[in-house]
Each structure stands twice: as C-alpha cells, then as structure tokens.
Amino acid sequence: MIDVKNVKKSFGSNHVLKGVDIHVEQGDVVAILGPSGSGKTTFLRCLNFLERADEGTLEIGDTRVNLHSASSKEILAVRRRTAFVFQNYNLFANMTALKNVMEPLVTAHKVPKEEARQRALEALAGVGLADRADYYPAQLSGGQQQRVSIARAMAVKPDVILFDEPTSALDPELIGDVLKVMKDLAKAGVTMIVVTHEMSFARDVANHVIFMDGGVIVEQGTPKDVFYNTKEERTRQFLARINREVEYNI
C-alpha cells in the first residue's frame, strides 16, 4: 500500500540518507530503530515533506509523488492522507485539546463543524482524555499532550500515522499511557510507522522491525528475526548496548 523508494538526503557534505526503501502494507506496524544520527527521524520527516529529500519516490494508495520535486499541491495531498506525531507534541498552543483535534478535520479535510466535534470527542475518548477536551496544551502534562496529538492524528482516519520518537520527551512514568494508546491503535488495525527507542514496543507491538544505521537499512524483518535471530553484527551491538541500558535503568 505504501511504497517508498531510494530516499537520499544530505545536509551539506553530511549524507544522512543514502538510499532507503521500505514497503508497508495496510495494517502494518513498522518500528524503525537505530542509534541517534542514523537518519531514521530524517527519513520519517522526508515522507511528510517536513524535510525535502534530494531523491526518492513515495507511493501511497493511488498517489505517486517524487519526494524531491513534488509540487505544493501534491505535498498537500500526501499530508492529507497521512498524519504525523511529533516528539515534542507540537499541539497548537492557541487551541484547546478539542480544537486541536478538530483543526485538521475542519480546515484541511473540510468536515462540517458539528461532525468534526463528534469525531474529535470520540478520538479524545479513545485516548482516555474526554475530560480534558477544554484544556489548553499548557495545562496538560507531557503524556496528556502526546495523547491529544495522537488523537489529532487518528481523527482524520489517515492511511498511515507517522510517529517520530513519540515517547522520547516524556518522563518515564508517563511513557506507559502513551504506549498503551499506540498499542490500542495497532490492535484496531491502524497503519503506523514508528521511529522509536522503546524496544518493548518494537518487540511486542510491531509486526515489522527496521534497523537503520549510517543512513541505510542494515537489517529488517519480523521482531523475532531482528531481535532473536540477528544476522548483522552492527544490529547485535546496538541491541546489546540498549539491553545493558535497560538493565542499568532497572
């Protein structure tokens, strides 16, 4: 359903992405892992044109665009078929939680206001925040803000939700709530591409795991393949280090 081919991107002389391909089917939950600087966040941002790739194509449903030279009309079309969840939430600071969820529905998707309100309330209930509908972002905790931002993403019923390290900015005790919401989404069959450091999520929720390093995909497969039948040395080292950190944290 989603086909991404040969994404390349440099910042000056720094080649961040050296040709990345992925293929995602309807209902897939793809987890992208990798050390910082591996290019995984840049890759995700390129898919939504938050960064302009130097090369590459994106096919989503029946839409096919060039990631480098797409027109602003095409970009808008892609953005209206996808949703993005940011590391630091980026809720619209001037709007309540409810208005935040309604905004893409009303302004970008031209859903009538009353219907948008209903759908937004449902989405907020889905992330367990129906009672916070009238709160402004500044009045919510980080975890709550991130759940609102997930509600904002799922309310438009996108073809795919792109998650950029959704739990990295959160205090450890708030991560659980957000992960649970994401797990519910996965169960409901929502297609997701998730850049994450949460090994448990990748292992237990994702059905496809991608390990990136140095701007290329080093290894990919089912969680079982990548975590337990690791083929590549670089992946092994990365996983070993992560596991040590996890033990250390405990």
Binding site: R79, N90, P104
Partner: peptide, 11 residues
Amino acid sequence: GQYEAGAAAGL
C-alpha cells in the same frame, strides 16, 4: 514545531 504541525495536519 507549530508550523510543522500545521503542515503535517494538511493545512
């Protein structure tokens, strides 16, 4: 991030 969130929301 506010500009990016707007763009990502399809505005």
